[in-house]
Design a binder for these strands. Structure first.
Lengths: 238, 238
DNA sequence: TGCGATAGTAAACATCGTTCACCTGACTGA
DNA sequence: TCAGTCAGGTGAACGATGTTTACTATCGCA
């Protein structure tokens, strides 16, 4: 009576859970994480605040659940963008990077909740630090594309010995799920992810406005530069 | 009677202002931005909450002032690290990057307040989007080091025409204070800053734990890689 | 010495998360 | 069919918050 056919009660319950999370997101978007208020959500739903405690043990737990949903949402959009880009791993990488930025720019407050400073008790409890981290779902398609690209034709990287010594011992979580991952691919993936994350967070968090009025221009230039660096584009230099 | 000799009242006042901000920072570190409470600060100071309104018009204003102080602090430490690194601009860049990361790792919550998701009303009011942004003080020494490095010997970049067309029109704020800045330097600076910011934010915000147990290792590898890319290190490749 | 700005207090208001006691209505087992 | 269990919801209450208002005392300058 659990998975096969959800009983009527379970359907109503999950609908209410969704409505609560929708209300929380609306408040989040309108006024930031601080503006998420149980009482306001309940008012919007025509309920009273204590009723929400039948569905979430605390406000914090609700925010954690919302953050997990948002992580799933962005991971889904990124993966979809990659799949819609055809079979070439280079194009897939570009499409996924653009999809990630597009989601972030379209949902800046949500981005801050999921990818920003961990709200005390949220980031440390909800998103644990182990291999089944929700972040892994986001990284996986990037990793797969890098791997296919590498198998087709390797690109220049720092010397293998250096990476094996300085990076290898700390790739534990990554190697548990991808045991056969060449360290060159792991390095390039991590380096590229940091560049992507940095570029997007910088734009969404307003950290670059003092120097650049159109961050998307730099983003596109970096995509071209990075892809040519991993041999996925004709070298853009003359 | 303003600048020359601060009157006794002014001295006491600025001491109280500092004490308030110290209390705010203590609460920030202990429990995140949400934990900054006027009443708690006042209690710790042996006062009542409304007294603080003689010094700050609102809690938000206090947080903004604290954030500005923190930005000054990190900018000062970064600049000091650069100056302590001698005359070579490559060494200066490495020292400043390490100094930035060191401050962030030592003060993660403060980093989140200054470089994380803009608290609604804080990031948008306090850190305006124009050339006198406090972020500029942080970027300036990096920019200067890049410029000296470029004047000594240029490094390979994307083609000048591409950058002039796609990036040039949006460098307004940067060019107002550095009119003669070669666009290659501007691009390298922005790209490098995004990489540095991304690497540090990723570590401090716990966005990479699922793949890497020791982010500092990747950070150091990236410093080597980047510096060799701009010709500030012997190429680490065999 | 007197006066005015300054710093501080106490009380109050609206809001918040959370807990408790209570109620009600739907589903279930005999 | 009927009794009973329990999920879902309410209302009141507690302690905490930011903020405003009215009031008071004290410091420092003329």
């Amino acid at each position: 009576m659990t998975a096969s056919s959800p009983t009527r009660r379970e359907r109503l319950r999950s609908a209410t859970v969704s409505e609560i999370k929708e209300g929380a997101r609306k408040l989040l978007v309108a006024g930031g994480p601080q503006a998420i208020s149980l009482r306001q959500i309940a008012r919007d739903m025509g309920m009273t605040a204590p009723a929400i405690y039948r569905y979430f043990p605390s406000l914090e737990a609700l925010v954690v659940a919302l953050a997990e949903d948002l992580m799933d949402e962005v991971a889904g959009e990124v993966a979809a963008a990659g799949e819609a880009a055809g079979d070439d791993p280079g194009r897939q990488l570009a499409a996924m990077a653009r999809g990630y930025r597009a989601w972030a720019v379209a949902n800046p407050v949500e981005f801050g909740l999921v990818f920003g400073a961990p709200v005390p008790g949220v980031g440390d409890l909800g998103l644990e630090c182990l291999p089944d981290d929700p972040g892994a779902d986001l990284g996986r398609p990037f990793l797969a594309a890098f791997l296919r690209l590498w198998q087709r034709e390797p690109w220049p990287t720092p010397p293998r010995d250096y990476m094996l010594e300085h990076l290898g011992p700390y790739l534990g979580p990554l190697r548990e799920t991808h045991g056969d991952l060449p360290i060159e691919v792991a390095y390039t993936f991590l380096s590229g992810w940091a560049r992507l994350y940095g570029m997007v967070a910088m734009e969404v968090f307003h950290q670059v406005r003092w120097a650049l009025t159109r961050p998307e221009a730099l983003f596109e230039a970096e995509i071209v530069q990075f892809l040519s660096q991993v041999g996925a584009l004709p070298d853009p230099r003359p």
